[in-house]
C-alpha cells in the first residue's frame, strides 16, 4: 500500500481527481489500520498468554510436589497410592492407563475415521455426502458424559456377554467408546486433507484409465498423506486428554497393567477424582494432580504440535 502511495506521489499523476483526497485520507487510513492491528494483536496475545499462564501455574504447583517426591520416583515408579498411609507416587500406572485406553480408541478411530473420510471425499455422491456430514458433526457434539454412560451401561454389558468375567469397570469398553467419540474428528480432519487434493491430480489419474479406487489409493492418499497422519495424531491427542468416558467406564483405581480387560485409572480420571475432593487442599497428594497434569499437557502438546506440523505440510505442497 505504501508503495503505491509513493508511486503516485513521485509520479505526480495529474489524471486522478481523487489524488488530493487520497493524500489527506492517508493518515486516517493508516491510523485505522494501526488500531485494527492492535486489537488483533491483543487477541492473539491473550491466547498465547493463557497457554503460557496455564503451563506456568502447573509448573509452579508441581514444583511444591517435586519438593517432596523425586522426579525419578514419579516417572518410573509403578505404584500410585496417594491415599495410603505410606503414599507412593509412581505415575506409570496412570500413564499406562492413558496409553492403553488411547491405543484402543485409536485402533477404532484411525481405520474407521480414515474409511469414512475416504468415502465422503472420493466415493459418496456429493448429495449423499452433504446429508451424511451433519450426522457426523452431531456425533462430535454429544457431551462426553453421555458417551461415558453409554460405555458403562451399554457397551460393558455387551462385552461381558462375549468376554466372561469382564469387570464392570474396564479399559476395553472405555477405549472402544472413546474411539467412537473421536471418529468424527479424525474423519473430518482427514476428509479436509483429501478434499484439499487438487481436482487436476484426480483428473490426471482418471485420464490414465484409473478407477475411482485406484485414484483414491494411489493419488489422493499419497497427496493427502501428511493430512491424514495429522488427523490420526490429533485424534490420539484427543483420546489422551479425554476424561469423562474413562473416569466413568474404566474405573478410578490406579492399576499397573496393560490388560485392557482390567479396570484402571488414567491421568485424567485421577485428576477429576482428586479435584472432586478426596484429598485435602495443599497436601502432597493434592499437589500431585498438577504434576500429572503437567505430564498430560506435555503429551498432548507434543501430539498437537506434530499434528499441526503435518497439517501445514499439505498446504505447502499445493
Amino acid at each position: 500500500m505504501s508503495d503505491a502511495m509513493t508511486a503516485t506521489e513521485t509520479g505526480g499523476s495529474p489524471s486522478s481527481l481523487y489524488l488530493d483526497r487520497i493524500r489527506t485520507m492517508r493518515h486516517v487510513r493508516n491510523g485505522k489500520e494501526r488500531v485494527i492491528e492492535a486489537i488483533l494483536f491483543v487477541a492473539a496475545f491473550c491466547a498465547v498468554a493463557v497457554t503460557v499462564a496455564i503451563v506456568a501455574i502447573l509448573l509452579y504447583e508441581a514444583s511444591t510436589f517435586f519438593a517432596h517426591v523425586s522426579l525419578v520416583e514419579f516417572l518410573t515408579g509403578t505404584e500410585w497410592t496417594p491415599l495410603f498411609e505410606r503414599a507412593s507416587y509412581g505415575m506409570l500406572p496412570l500413564l499406562v492407563g492413558t496409553v492403553v485406553t488411547s491405543f484402543i480408541a485409536f485402533v477404532v478411530a484411525g481405520p474407521l475415521g480414515f474409511l469414512i473420510a475416504m468415502y465422503l471425499s472420493e466415493f459418496a455422491p456429493p448429495k449423499l455426502a452433504e446429508v451424511l456430514k451433519p450426522f457426523l458433526e452431531l456425533l462430535a457434539g454429544v457431551p462426553t458424559i453421555v458417551y461415558g454412560y453409554f460405555a458403562l451401561l451399554f457397551v460393558t454389558p455387551l462385552l461381558q456377554k462375549i468376554i466372561p468375567g469382564l469387570p464392570g469397570f474396564n479399559m476395553l469398553s472405555a477405549g472402544l467408546v472413546m474411539g467412537l467419540m473421536i471418529v468424527p474428528y479424525v474423519a473430518s480432519v482427514a476428509e479436509d486433507a483429501m478434499r484439499a487434493v487438487p481436482m487436476a491430480l484426480r483428473e490426471g489419474s482418471y485420464a490414465m484409465g484409473a478407477t475411482r479406487f485406484q485414484t483414491a489409493m494411489w493419488v489422493v492418499l499419497p497427496a493427502s498423506f501428511s493430512g491424514v497422519m495429522a488427523a490420526f495424531v490429533l485424534g490420539i491427542s484427543r483420546a489422551v486428554g479425554e476424561t469423562m468416558i474413562v473416569a466413568i467406564a474404566a474405573g478410578q483405581q490406579p492399576n499397573f497393567t496393560f490388560d485392557p480387560r482390567e479396570p484402571a485409572a488414567t491421568i485424567t480420571a485421577y485428576i477429576v477424582q482428586v479435584a472432586m475432593g478426596d484429598l485435602p487442599h495443599g497436601s502432597i497428594g493434592y499437589q500431585s494432580i498438577f504434576a500429572v497434569g503437567l505430564v498430560l499437557v506435555v503429551i498432548t502438546l507434543v501430539f498437537n504440535l506434530i499434528g499441526q506440523m503435518l497439517r501445514r505440510r499439505i498446504r505447502e505442497v499445493y
Binding site: 490414465m208 484409465g209 485406484q214
Partner: peptide, 28 residues
Amino acid sequence: RMRISMVFQKPNPFPKTIFENVAYGLMV
C-alpha cells in the same frame, strides 16, 4: 481413457516418484 491419453494445461504429476509417475498407466 486407456486408448486415448491426455496432457493437461498445468503439469499435474502425481505425488509419487518419477518412475511411478511414468509407470502409472501400466500399473493401472
